[in-house]
């Protein structure tokens, strides 16, 4: 990456803050509204054809980040670029065109399809709205899309409730493919599926990538799934990215203390190594995104926390060999205590 063509998708310091509904009293007193800092300054570049896995604990902002990318949410600040062009720009027509290239696969195979539309109606609607093909070719296109995701075209006139979870997920994928996207955000796309069905859908996603050259942001809490499908893994903690590393190495050599804990917490089948350990990988719960700790956000739970960690927020710094990590244990961090001027504005 880096030299030559711009990344397919790139965020720069993307933030998404949700204001909490504030009481009338607070408003009258002129208190600033509280915000949930769901995504808090994320810079991530995704190259064409690659799969980036996004992992992290519940509530750390994975879904919010994904929804910002597909423009379901209007980011609070920062920039979002697609093939080098800003998606937050003012040229409505261009934004509309770019938007089509970015699609999403949803988590819940039960609520992600309109219960009152047959599969044919749902897919045809997409083709017609975007004039993907001449009217006469719509039925053939629908059949083609269904076959693409491994479903028989004979099933097109059924309603979503007549399909199993795995089949519905395939329909959701077909719907996203209908607009011929280049980039797909898959938010927990296989989490609701059984192991044997999950493997089928993962294979389908791999196949589509091989055939169509798709790029994925694959959001999942199941690290085994991410390890399997991703080329690179981004680890998120409380609205920020703390580590980015190749999937091939991150599970064996996690750098950030949080990544290390996450990897250690994965239940493995490997009974030989540490059968039934009696200590947990990490203690405590993640803090609330409404009260983000100062300095390194992980410091209240980090076994290596140092004085500097409480004051200076680490930045995502590249490390030799490719990974990037936001932790004072590694080189490339802003100067530590003493240089007081550094940590302006790291607090609330």
């Amino acid at each position: 990456m880096g030299n030559g063509a711009p990344p397919l998708v790139e965020t720069r310091d993307l933030t998404m803050h949700f204001p909490l509904p504030s009481g009338l009293v607070d408003r009258l007193r002129g208190r600033p509204a509280e915000v949930v800092r769901a995504v808090d300054g994320v810079s991530l570049a995704i190259a064409a054809g690659e799969t980036v896995g996004l992992v992290g604990e519940s509530g750390c902002g994975k879904t919010t980040f994904g929804r910002c990318l597909v423009r379901l949410y209007e980011p609070t600040s920062g920039d979002l670029r697609f093939r080098g062009e800003s998606l937050l720009g003012h040229d409505a027509a261009a934004v509309r065109r770019l938007r089509r290239s970015v699609q999403m696969i949803f988590q819940d195979p039960y609520s992600s399809l309109n219960p009152r539309k047959t599969v044919r109606a749902a897919l045809s609607e997409v083709l017609r709205v975007h004039r993907i093909c001449p009217e006469a070719e719509v039925p053939a296109r629908v059949a083609g899309l269904l076959e693409r995701v491994g479903l028989s075209a004979a099933l097109a006139d059924r309603y979503p409730r007549q399909f199993s979870g795995g089949q519905r997920q395939r329909i959701g994928i077909a719907r996203a493919l209908a607009v011929e996207p280049a980039f797909i955000v898959a938010d927990e796309a296989v989490s609701a599926l059984d192991v044997s069905i999950q493997a089928q859908v993962l294979n389908l996603l791999a196949q589509l990538q091989d055939d169509l050259g798709l790029t994925y942001l694959f959001i999942a809490h199941n690290l085994g799934v991410v390890r399997h499908i991703a080329d690179r893994v981004a680890v998120m903690y409380l609205g920020t990215i703390v580590e980015v590393q190749a999937a091939a190495t991150v599970f064996d050599q996690p750098l950030h203390p949080y990544t290390q804990a996450l990897v250690r917490a994965i239940p493995t089948l490997d009974r030989g190594r540490a059968a039934r350990p009696t200590t947990a990988a990490i203690e405590g719960d993640p803090p609330s995104p409404m009260a983000v700790p100062a300095g390194c956000r992980f410091h209240p739970r980090c076994p290596y926390a140092m004085p500097v960690c409480r004051e200076v927020a680490p930045v995502l710094a590249p490390q030799p060999g490719g990974p990037a990590v936001a932790c004072h244990l590694y080189p490339g961090q802003p100067a530590a205590a003493g240089a007081v001027s550094v940590n302006i504005g790291t607090g609330a």
């Binding site: 929804r67 597909v70 423009r71 379901l72 509309r96 938007r99 089509r100 970015v102 699609q103 999403m104 949803f106 988590q107 819940d108 609520s111 992600s112 399809l113 309109n114 219960p115 609607e125 997409v126 709205v129 975007h130 959701g172 719907r175 996203a176 209908a178 607009v179």
Partner: peptide
Amino acid sequence: AEYVLAARTLGFGDARIIAG
């Protein structure tokens, strides 16, 4: 509901989403 979010990511207009 995710099917409404899906309609939005597919770039459907608001009128179509509300009515359809």
